[in-house]
Simulated scan of single mutants.
Amino acid sequence: MRRRLGAARRWHTEHRRLVRRTLFGLVVGAVVLAGGTVASVSWVRGESDGHLYSEADVPAAPVALVLGTKVDADGTPSPILAARLEIAQRLFERGKVIAILVSGDNMNADYNEPEAMLRWLVDRGVPARKVVLDYAGFDTYDSCARARQIFGVERATVVTQSFHLPRAVALCRRLGIDAQGVGDDSAKQYSRTWRFGSLRENGACLKAALDVLSGREPAHLGRHETGVEDALRDV
């Protein structure tokens, strides 16, 4: 009996120690995560400071880089994506960009963001020869890295929603593109989507910082593509 009681006491003692260690580890992890998030948000803001413009005031650049997002089941851009494309269309019409690089997800044959963006722009008068497609822009980091490494973009105006813009511009600039940005605010009417997107930026900034620090390569690279160069020459 005494042996069983002693074993039980030892088990409870070890169990309490394990619980305390686990809780301590969780608290330390949460503190580190919170600190990293705050630092990464600060980095994004500092990197993009002075490079975010209104549509009316943005300087001219050779290329508009439009970042992809959800395409509806019928193959048309979601309202959030259409708002980005409207800005790019107006920048092109006003001569503030010469070519438009649309970068998005084409992970499988049934889902194609770049083709949907191309159709939207062409239907509204942008010549197809001025629209260049990047089918492997699976996230913001990949889109920025591929714009520089695959398409040779050196200077660009990034177009996305305003809550996403600082991170996109910061990544492009850190990855070698002299980037400025124009953000859309019209999509605030979709309040739930806007709130969710704004909230997730904190975590996304931490991921962006880790991607930069690790120097990871995009999911897909490959040979140099001349689409942007061809579009810029065709004046």
Rank of each mutant, 00 (worst) to 15 (best):
S78Y: 08
G75R: 12
Y135G: 04
A99G: 02
T69V: 12
V169Y: 00
A7F: 09
V31D: 06
I98L: 13
D139A: 06
G197E: 06
Q149C: 03
Q89W: 05
H220I: 15
M1Q: 12
Q149I: 10
L33I: 08
E225H: 11
I150E: 02
V122D: 02
V71N: 01
E113I: 07
P166D: 11
L133A: 01
P79R: 01
V132F: 11
G203I: 02
A145W: 03
Q89I: 10
L118C: 05
Q189H: 11
A82I: 05
R195P: 00
F24A: 15
G125A: 13
Q89S: 14
G36Q: 11
R167H: 08
R94M: 09
L232R: 01
G125I: 07
C172Y: 02
M1R: 11
F196C: 11
T76Y: 09
L213N: 11
R223Y: 00
D230H: 13
T13L: 15
V41C: 10
L101F: 06
R146F: 06
V153F: 01
R84G: 08
V131F: 09
V44L: 01
A156K: 03
L65Q: 00
I98R: 12
D123M: 10
V27H: 06
I177Y: 01
L5H: 09
V97W: 06
E113N: 09
Q161I: 08
L85W: 05
A7K: 13
E113K: 06
E55N: 04
A73Q: 13
W120E: 00
G176H: 04
V28N: 10
H224S: 12
R233N: 12
A8W: 05
T226Q: 13
F196S: 15
G95M: 10
L210E: 08
R84T: 10
R4Y: 11
H224W: 11
L210N: 02
C144R: 02
D139F: 04
Q180W: 05
V132W: 02
V132K: 01
R216P: 03
S162G: 10
R45C: 01
L221C: 13
A187I: 14
L175G: 03
N106P: 00
A147Y: 08
A60D: 12
E93R: 14
L165P: 00
V122P: 04
G183W: 01
H12L: 15
Y141N: 02
I98F: 04
A170P: 03
A208N: 03
A187M: 13
V235R: 14
R216W: 08
P166Q: 09
R195H: 13
Q149T: 12
T160L: 02
R20P: 00
P59W: 07
R146Q: 10
D142L: 02
A30K: 01
D110I: 08
L210R: 14
H15E: 14
R174C: 04
G36M: 07
S40M: 01
L101D: 00
E115I: 12
W43C: 04
V182Q: 04
A109L: 13
P77A: 11
V27S: 11
C205L: 07
G6S: 10
V31F: 03
R216G: 11
G35Q: 09
R146D: 03
L65H: 03
P79M: 05
I100C: 06
G104P: 10
R17K: 14
H220V: 15
G181E: 02
I150H: 03
G125P: 00
V102P: 00
A8C: 07
V212N: 05
V32E: 06
R155F: 09
R223P: 14
D178Y: 11
A209T: 08
H224Y: 14
E201I: 05
A128W: 01
D57P: 03
